[in-house]
Design a binder for these strands. Structure first.
Lengths: 211, 211
DNA sequence: ATCGCATATCACCGGTCGGTGACATTTGGC
DNA sequence: GCCAAATGTCACCGACCGGTGATATGCGAT
């Protein structure tokens, strides 16, 4: 019988709970990054991890618990992956420009973050809010580290302006992944993004520039 | 038996194909606006319309055809609902500021448009692209009518800048509907939005203003 | 009045979903 | 060696999904 080894061939069947948990979290992360929250179901994740869905219930109490665990691991992973702080920015305008470029770079090459962003837009829930909070927290502390003690110039509603900038960046990145174009602008090549970064930088200099 | 009238109570059972088609389109629109593309299924729409799902297949060839019909009706409805053009803007900056405010006003009170926007972000497909094209076309022609013959000042990458503005507006509106807050900024009351409009206007004046 | 046909409804199919109980297998303490 | 607990696997359930055939029902032309 050729399938007599189907017990041992299916790889690390060793009874290692921690390993299995990590495997499940990785599987959920992969599924989410690849197919979005739509395909994120108990059966899909278990199939992807190569083990039974029952383990998701046993170890995480269900899919929600698994997502939550994914969130905590995400925040640590993301904190490690972000580029370290360089030399301090010369001005608040330079700082914001650098942050905008950094945000674009990080978001553009991380499908998982993009999926989480649209997930909360499409199907908001306390669970996704937690997940998004983990993402947001990591990015915020990273930004705060870059900021140092620079303060925005007076006469500008900095929170509103920064919200606008971040919103634009997030929407453009997500739109690029979804349709590759936005408002008639191509968002495929790096050159397209350089053009956008230039425009954003221009805008930031005008708003926050010393004048 | 109290349910003896469940045959007649389901209202206009008259054999009117056009009426039924309109009923189905309205039902699909309502479902989409209320629960997003997630809940937009054959069974849900038919249940909402109060008739059998078979009719969706017969009249529209399936859910896709119904969505397409929804799209064509959307473009005409939207074109009629948009506010008429007022007196021409004094400058390109004023024009863009007015367009941004108008876009915010339109999007903020139209759940359907918001759902369509996130739909394409979450589950892009040729079908949704068509739907979105209908929406985009109506808004674009409306904007073009407002523009008249004003041209953006030289030295500014107007397409990129406008894409940034529109992206920011769309993302903020959709985020407001989903979570009521963005980047620490409350997006609930009209006052919150006035603040944002002021910031956007300020930015536009700096970028496009005569100086 | 009746016949034909478009319209509307019902019943049913296969498939997938989330969820759960029962069973098999390995590990570790005694 | 043995037993209990932890780990892993399988089978099954009810509910919902999209999709389709068969059947009722009413309108309009003749």
């Amino acid at each position: 019988m050729p399938d007599s080894d189907n017990k041992t061939v299916s790889a690390p069947r060793t009874k290692d709970r921690d390993g299995t948990e990590a495997l499940l979290i990785s599987a959920a992360t992969a599924v989410l990054a690849e197919t979005g929250f739509q395909g994120l179901g108990i059966n899909t994740v278990a199939r992807r991890a190569g083990c039974d869905k029952q383990l998701i219930y046993r170890y995480f109490g269900g899919l929600d618990g698994l997502i939550e665990a994914l969130g905590t691991r995400l925040s640590t992973d993301l904190a490690d992956a972000l580029p370290p702080v360089g030399e301090p920015a010369a001005s608040y305008a330079d700082l914001m420009q650098r942050l905008a470029s950094g945000l674009i770079a990080v978001l553009r090459c991380d499908a998982l973050l993009q999926r989480i962003i649209v997930w909360e837009l499409a199907a908001p829930s306390p669970l996704v809010a937690k997940l998004n909070a983990a993402r947001s927290r990591a990015l915020t502390t990273w930004m705060a580290a870059q900021r140092g003690d620079l303060a925005p110039p007076t006469g500008v509603d900095a929170p509103a302006m920064n919200a606008i900038i971040i919103a634009a960046v997030q929407h453009l990145v997500v739109s690029a992944q979804a349709k590759g174009v936005f408002a008639g602008l191509a968002l495929e090549s790096d050159a397209d993004w350089d053009r956008l970064e230039t425009a954003i930088g221009h805008m930031i200099q005008l708003v926050y520039g010393s004048r």
